[in-house]
Nucleic acid binder design. Structure first.
Lengths: 129, 129
DNA sequence: CCATGGCGCTTTGCGAGCGAAAGTAGGCGG
DNA sequence: CCGCCTACTTTCGCTCGCAAAGCGCCATGG
């Protein structure tokens, strides 16, 4: 590396931003679940994340198929009740994702405050768009 | 609020996660740009974010149409050269997004270390999926 | 006893979005 | 003059996310 001028190649590629996890709704679901080792009910999750039934159902299926959450269907009294929990590997994946999120944030804050001016070569005229 | 049991309704909804910004590639692009007030060239951006030409072009168009970046086409010598820069409102939007990212991260780290066990009511048998 | 309505979830439909691949336009080297 | 290279843009297939409709079950009430 650093065979070129800067060695910054791919500096902002963020390959670790797992597409399955990097999603508004899913991020909320997982963060909710991460806090409770014994899981959450479908209905609670729905309220916590302000999701519609259909939406939540869809996302849970995706997460289940990815082996990130496990879903247990049971009954409360005689009404169906679905319990969702992070799997162990799901938790690891989530933590990994959070790790790169941290580095994104670090870059961002860095950028925000520094806003350093790199000397730029503006050769001839740049016509406005 | 707190008209129900917990007052946590929508606690994890993260409505501020702007869909236009919340995207792997775009996030990288914006973070790159945020650091340099005088902008970056198409080719630099491409290298920094490990994007293909087509991809970068696509994303830039989206960002431009959303008024987040401005694109100036000019020439270096007599080769075309495209300069991209964050607009002022784009910067604000980006900072807003980063703000909610911080809160997501705070929640996540909280969850990760605490992993508190809420007492759960598991009424009758939960059959394994 | 049927029907009307609510709860808990699943399935379907569709429009938007993403990224790979192909296309365009001009410079430059042989 | 010809073909390769750089610097993008456009097209295309497929996935994805979201909203709306559907399904099964229980409860209530006429």
């Amino acid at each position: 590396m650093s065979d070129k001028k800067s060695g910054d190649e791919g500096r902002y590629a963020y390959e670790g931003l797992d597409r399955v996890l990097h999603e508004k709704a899913r991020l909320g679901i997982l963060t909710s679940l991460a806090a409770r080792a014994d899981g959450l009910l479908f209905t609670d999750l729905k309220a916590l994340c302000n999701l519609t039934d259909g939406n939540l159902s869809r996302h849970l299926t995706v997460l289940q198929e990815a082996g990130i959450v496990e879903i247990k269907k049971g009954f409360r009294g005689r009404r169906p009740q679905t319990l969702c929990r992070l799997t162990e590997s799901g938790r690891r994946r989530y933590l990994g994702y959070i790790g790169v999120l941290e580095s994104v944030l670090a870059d961002a804050l860095d950028a925000a405050k520094a806003t350093r001016r790199t000397k730029r070569v503006l050769p001839e005229g740049f016509s406005p768009a």
